[in-house]
């Protein structure tokens, strides 16, 4: 495999160069998540409220966008949409590639977000809605004030994963020639042949952003779920109380009969 000799100086040299395209990456992520939330709500509602026909369409939509690789979706929309629009005499040949990328990621994220919303709403105990009705709230008040806030809190970890996954997926936009971070890395390599240095820098940047996002979401989650604190620590599980488990394992090692231990 070709490439120039490894030179640590390039690690530092390329860092700011890659970072200069970070805004493109973050723009794709934030726009996609924003539109994805809109799409996700629209797609989730027919299934939550069991609206005939629309509900089927939602299911097919979600199944398709979750059932095919995002890379294929990217190509499908990039090559397919202009041709479809040509049929209705809309010319998009001059539309920036970035639009197609954001569109694909929005539709993709929308499918996952609709599933997230559905799971979140279903996870809220029915008694919560009944209690809201019993104090006289109407359907809208019940949904927005009681069910949705709880559903969102439940969904937050899933949402965090989705945002981070979208960030990582933006690395695929380079296949269409978008100058986000991975695309920039591609050009740097064409110029200097310093593959490894470039990709290490790229990895570090993606990692730092993912890590920061994860921390941020965890803080948010702790805030949103402050009402659950006691319940969450109460769950005694196989590994969460490792000391006692290890105690059990150690104890039984010497005494074949074993006992329930401490």
């Amino acid at each position: 495999m070709p490439g120039a000799k490894f030179d640590i100086a390039y690690l530092f040299d390329y860092f700011p160069k890659l970072l200069s395209t970070l805004n493109v990456t973050l723009t794709i992520v934030s726009l996609s998540i924003l539109f994805g939330l809109g799409v996700g709500f629209l797609v989730a509602l027919p299934r939550l409220y069991k609206i005939p026909v629309l509900r089927r369409l939602s299911e097919v939509y979600v199944s398709f966008f979750r059932g095919t690789p995002i890379l294929i979706q990217l190509f499908l929309i990039y090559y397919g949409l202009p041709e479809m629009l040509k049929l209705v005499h809309i010319d998009v040949t001059r539309t920036p590639v970035l639009v197609f990328v954001v569109l694909t990621y929005s539709l993709h994220a929308g499918a996952f977000i609709s599933e997230m919303i559905r799971a979140g709403v279903t996870a809220v105990d029915r008694g919560q809605a009944e209690a809201a009705y019993s104090v006289g709230m109407n359907g809208y008040q019940t949904f927005t004030r009681i069910v949705l806030p709880q559903a969102l809190a439940i969904s937050l970890p899933v949402f965090a994963n989705l945002v981070i996954a979208t960030l990582k997926d933006t690395s695929l936009a380079f296949t269409l020639g978008v100058m986000e971070m991975t695309g920039k890395a591609d050009t740097l390599i064409t110029l200097g042949q310093h593959y490894i240095e470039t990709y290490i820098d790229l990895a570090i940047i993606y990692f730092v952003i993912s890590f920061a996002l994860e921390r941020l979401f965890r803080l948010l989650e702790r805030r949103l779920l402050r009402h659950e604190r006691r319940e969450r620590t109460a769950g005694k599980r196989f590994g969460r109380n490792v000391p006692s488990l290890r105690g059990l394992l150690a104890e039984s090692a010497g005494v074949p009969k074993g006992g329930a231990g401490g």
């Binding site: 495999m1 981070i164 593959y195 993606y206 990692f207």
Partner: peptide, 22 residues
């Protein structure tokens, strides 16, 4: 685990593809 999950799969592939031979 944190590092791998925090970086794109594409970057793992490219790092291995270009780094491992070296």
């Amino acid at each position: 685990v944190t590092f791998i999950r925090g970086t794109p799969m594409l970057v793992h592939l490219l790092l291995i593809y270009y780094g491992l031979p070296a």
